[in-house]
Amino acid sequence: MTTMTVAPRFPLYRKEAKYEFLRLLRARTFTLATIGFPVMFYLLFGVVNSRGHEVLSASKYLMATYAIFGLVGCSLFGISVTLSNERNLGWLEVKQASPMPAPAYLLAKLLTAFAFATIIFGLLLTLGLTLGHVTITGTEIRNLALTILGGVLPFASMGLMLAMVVPPQAAPGILNLIYLPMSFCSGLWMPVSVLPHWLQTAAPIWPTYHLSQIALGGIGFEMRGTLAGHIAALAGFTVLMLGLAIVLFRRNATAS
């Protein structure tokens, strides 16, 4: 009691985040899927479709939407699959029995999602500027970067909520069943305007739709709906997901 009774906070939080990032970076199935897919899709559909130096090219559109596709992937999978495994297979208990503060654990997962989203955005931007002949201003890059980073929050919350319900073995499969259709239906793979009419009408139910509209609006494309409306939708979605996550966490805690 005379000296420190708890460990210094900063190194603890830093190490928790560093090692969460490192362990996912080294997990090949994770990096291949979350970084590899958006990059591969972008090369196949974005770069190949780039024609000349149009200002509003398909390669510019897809650079933004595949960056969102990527951030949603790394937020959902990086949080849900790891947390679901750790909760159900004992590792979380080891950490809970240790003096590790719970916020350090959650913050580490959030920061890791930020890091992967940044990596994916950096790669797509590089490919877009070089192979994709994308014309983009400094302000537009800043807008897009802010949208990508801000967009991690709603999907990290969604990942947290899903981790409370999906069993560890089935987690990747269930997440893909949500992730892939949601990406398609909200216009991340091709513009909403070329989707069937009923899908266009239903698009606003997808959080990815709102995020992609903000991103596209920020880089010179015409935005469907209003910026305030999209931000409100994403904020509401985040609150809903966090609320559900807390309710489910408590329900699980009393059930066990």
Partner: peptide, 19 residues
């Protein structure tokens, strides 16, 4: 938290992050 710094625990774990 202050109590936990004086405790160590080895529990049965089905799976530990492997990387």
């Amino acid at each position: 938290a202050a109590t936990r710094t004086r405790i160590g625990a080895m529990l049965q774990v089905a799976r530990v992050p492997e990387t």
